[in-house]
Design a protein around this nucleic acid. Structure first.
Lengths: 161, 161
DNA sequence: GCCTCTGACGCAGCAAAATTGCACGGAACG
DNA sequence: CGTTCCGTGCAATTTTGCTGCGTCAGAGGC
């Protein structure tokens, strides 16, 4: 239930995939233009998109904003090790990370990695304050390792379709 | 030049931020509705969005698709340590990761972390093949640590505005 | 082999959304 | 106090998205 996700296995043909490729780059692309590239009519594209959305294949439509433009020039990846692997503890941590607006992404990983958390803050000082609140003073956290991002080489949510 | 990003410091007022908050959740929201929530007229919202886009604050508009729905049910975070810290090597690795479609995100981090890479693949076997090609057999890579994602607790590109 | 049913398509028309032109009002400046 | 500049709202236009309808091709039943 961690992810309220989509259907087991929708079957997508080449045109669906082509449409997804376009929308993952720019979902403001007019359906008419998509239609040309996919050899369909605009209404057909419209119907396919609607189907993909209600099937959960398309999970959302969002604007991507530049953190730097908002003064959030510092990104940090944090490897968080929980105090225990009991479900209560893990679930508690998940909830905390979900609720924290500075946390942009969070993954629970195996291989003794615990949680990988990506946060965006104004500067190192702000991160220090956040880390204190979210990790150091957190009873559910055993230890954590902070990796400051030097270069966001590639940032996206796109997947290969 | 790693990030062809935006202006030094655009000044955003409360309404800009409110608009960004909405668009980060759903950029298909009609400007009319945004206008209501922000106490502006629709054209005013339109002009502000246009300004935010050309200023680079809004970096793109994308559809988010569910990896699981596409058969990419396995996500792995990889901590990659480069063979050296020379610019040629680092730049080479960055380019390789940018070019690999399985790589969704990649960050160059300090603190001896090297690179953090997020990949999406079909299954563990596919990851093994990918890791061999991208890491094991890569002269620019010294070592790497694979952390399989058990639960994508929070996945987004949104930032607090 | 034929019929029917289902699903997807394109076309045409309609509704809704985005965009532009224009005139007004307030703030900064001289 | 007048001028300029920036952002706004209103109204009109253009573009886009959506829906109804008739057609067609393939799957399955008889």
């Amino acid at each position: 239930m961690g992810t309220p996700t989509a259907r087991p296995e929708a079957e997508l043909d080449d045109k669906d995939r082509a449409i997804l490729r376009i929308l993952q780059q720019d979902n403001k692309t007019p359906q008419r233009l998509i239609a040309e590239q996919v050899n369909l009519s605009a209404p057909a594209v419209q119907r396919r998109i609607a189907r993909l959305e209600s099937a959960g294949v398309i999970r959302g439509n969002i604007a991507v904003v530049d953190p730097a433009a908002l003064g959030l020039g510092t990104s940090v990846m944090v490897e968080v090790h929980s105090a225990s692997d009991r479900a209560v503890v893990l679930d508690g941590l998940k909830q905390q990370f979900r609720d924290a607006p500075e946390v942009q992404q969070c993954y629970h990983v195996g291989g003794n990695g615990g949680f990988i958390v990506i946060v965006h803050v104004q500067d190192i000082a702000a991160f220090d304050a956040l880390a204190r609140r979210l990790f150091s003073e957190n009873e559910l956290v055993y230890s954590f390792r902070s990796l400051v991002v030097l270069d966001p080489v590639k940032v996206s949510l796109a997947i290969e379709v």
